[in-house]
Amino acid sequence: MQQHSSNANTAMTRQVNKTGINLRDKCLRPGDDNEAAQQAITRAEQALEHLSVNFDDWIVTESRQLAKSRDDAKAAGFSENALRDLFQAAHNLKGQATTLGYPLADEICASLCRLIDKIPDKSRLPLLLIDQHVDAVRAVVAEGAKGTDNPKASVLAKRLHDVTGDFLAQEAARAGAA
């Protein structure tokens, strides 16, 4: 085996095996891969379509959880734990809102996550802007604004994205100047 001396962290990279677990032998079978893949994907999309009868209830549950996390965070004076829970609720919704049929709620939650994550000084989080994000998500859900076609919801999502971007730029400049 060779030894390298110029970089202690990356030297001696050893290829140890092909995978350890041989899934090829276990589950690959003769057949048309492309056709099988297309059939499986079509079945899965149909299954999601069947599951989608639950999606409106699920998005309501998630948006309520977001609002509750916001209320809890306010009550706790935006403590570190409360802020983490609020971020988590927004992040959860961001991850599934598009699948549930509400991509604009996804966009708004992405903006809220960015606000919480990127602001240099957490004590300067703008409560009004947080409220506006949470209330916008609830409005999108309450209005049943699915897809990206709802003009009011689209404008709202874009406006929140832009305002958040401007605010974060100001805060970054402020932190840099300090």
Binding site: N9, T10, A11, M12, T13, R14, Q15, V16, N17, K18, T19, G20, I21, N22, L23, R24, C27, L28, D33, A37, A40, I41, A44, E45, L48, G95, Q96, A97, T98, T99, D106
Partner: peptide
């Protein structure tokens, strides 16, 4: 957001094109 196609392709990659393991 996860899609049926993207998830299938990742699993297909894991099964059909397994990556060698390395140890440093």
């Amino acid at each position: 957001p996860v899609s049926a196609t993207a998830l299938y392709r990742r699993i297909q990659n894991v099964v059909s094109n397994p990556r060698d393991f390395v140890r440093t």
